[in-house]
């Protein structure tokens, strides 16, 4: 049996007086496609943010590829475990500024061909590269943000309700792109409220009041 990509043991998270996560224990296999559902405030986004190291748990251990999260340099870890926000913010002035950033943080020269291919994968035209970000629609912004996360293929994609508020066509484009990454071996964990996404889930984990209600694999 292969080592799980995430091994989460006794995870707790407290914010002030609020105990948001209580004793979460779960293993997530390499290449899994796990959908995380639950009511608002149940702790599912917090769980995802802890996996992304954007929050530090109050107690418990998260192992990534068999090693404790804390042993990885944070930038290296976050480039491999890529977190996508529900309402992303684009940087700078144009779409180009956003797609240059992943190259800059890796000390690489901007590869325009790669960026254009990535835009094409979410059905955005090449002319959009130099379009001011203030002219983009919500769906276009979300797709540019997703491309920004996926220009360099991560091992894990953490999706925090990224299709919420998108129209049906844009949802379809986003789902197809994520599916293609999943098929290429990327582990995908997505938080959602969308009943159709929950119904179509390969693997479902429900969180309620900071506890796992339905564990993965069941």
């Amino acid at each position: 049996m292969t080592e799980p990509i995430f091994d989460v043991q006794g995870l707790r998270y407290r914010n002030g007086k609020n105990q948001i996560l209580q004793d979460i224990t779960v293993q997530i296999e390499q290449g899994a496609n796990l959908t995380i559902a639950g009511p608002s405030g149940s702790g599912k986004s917090t769980f995802l943010r802890i996996l992304a190291t954007l929050l530090t748990p109050t107690a418990g251990v998260v192992k990534f590829n068999g090693k404790k999260q804390s042993t990885y340099p944070k930038p290296v870890y976050r480039q491999q475990v890529s977190y996508c926000f529900q309402q992303p913010t684009l940087f700078g002035e144009t779409v180009r500024d956003n797609l240059k950033f992943p190259f800059e943080i890796r000390n690489q020269t901007f590869d325009e061909t790669k960026a254009l291919a990535a835009l094409d994968s979410v059905e955005l035209k090449a002319e959009m590269l130099d379009q001011p970000i203030i002219e983009l629609s919500g769906g276009e912004k979300q797709r540019v943000a997703l491309v920004r996360n996926l220009l360099f293929k991560p091992q894990v994609l953490l999706l925090d309700e990224i299709s919420a508020g998108l129209d049906v066509d844009t949802k379809g484009v986003v789902h197809r792109l994520i599916q293609s990454y999943r098929e290429s071996g990327v582990t995908v964990l997505s938080v959602t409220h969308d009943e159709s996404e929950i119904a179509a889930a390969d693997d479902l984990m429900r969180i309620r009041d900071g506890k796992i209600e339905v564990p993965a694999h069941e």
Binding site: L54, R78, Q79, F91, I105
Partner: peptide
């Protein structure tokens, strides 16, 4: 936050 999440130092 987004820059950090993308792996920026």
């Amino acid at each position: 936050l987004e820059r950090l999440a993308l792996g920026a130092n």
